[in-house]
């Protein structure tokens, strides 16, 4: 236990010495796949059209922001990809895109 706390404190001090807490923020954009019926997107599109907005299509999805404890962007993306594939996204009906936010 003490060892773990010590490690956390060390990481914190190291991060501070490097000029800030090392963290990468990754955005995960999730949208239903084209071949899947997107009932929410369709309902939103109908309402927008009723309000005379000219749109061709509307897709409804999710946006998840992850703060990942690492200074390495590549590592952060790899971790986010693992999270997206195991939990955040159901590959049967959804596709996802990752982006570095900061």
């Amino acid at each position: 236990m003490g060892k773990r706390v010590g490690k956390t404190v060390n990481n914190f001090l190291l991060a501070r010495a490097n000029g800030g807490i090392s963290m990468v923020i990754v955005g995960v954009k999730i949208l239903p796949k084209k071949e899947v019926l997107d009932v929410q997107g369709r309902a939103i599109a109908e309402t927008l059209k009723r309000r005379k907005h000219l749109i061709e299509e509307c897709q409804y999805g999710k946006f998840i922001k992850l703060k990942i404890n690492t200074a390495n962007k590549e590592e952060a993306l790899n971790k986010a990809r693992e999270m997206a594939e195991s939990v955040l996204c159901n590959s049967l009906v959804e596709s996802y895109e990752l982006e570095i936010l900061s």
């Binding site: 899947v36 019926l37 009932v39 929410q40 309902a43 159901n90 049967l92 009906v93």
Partner: peptide
């Protein structure tokens, strides 16, 4: 379905 023990998935009803 989410664990993968069963195939497929359950989506929002077409009537919403």
């Amino acid at each position: 379905c989410e664990t993968g023990l069963l195939e497929g998935t359950l989506q929002i009803n077409n009537t919403l």
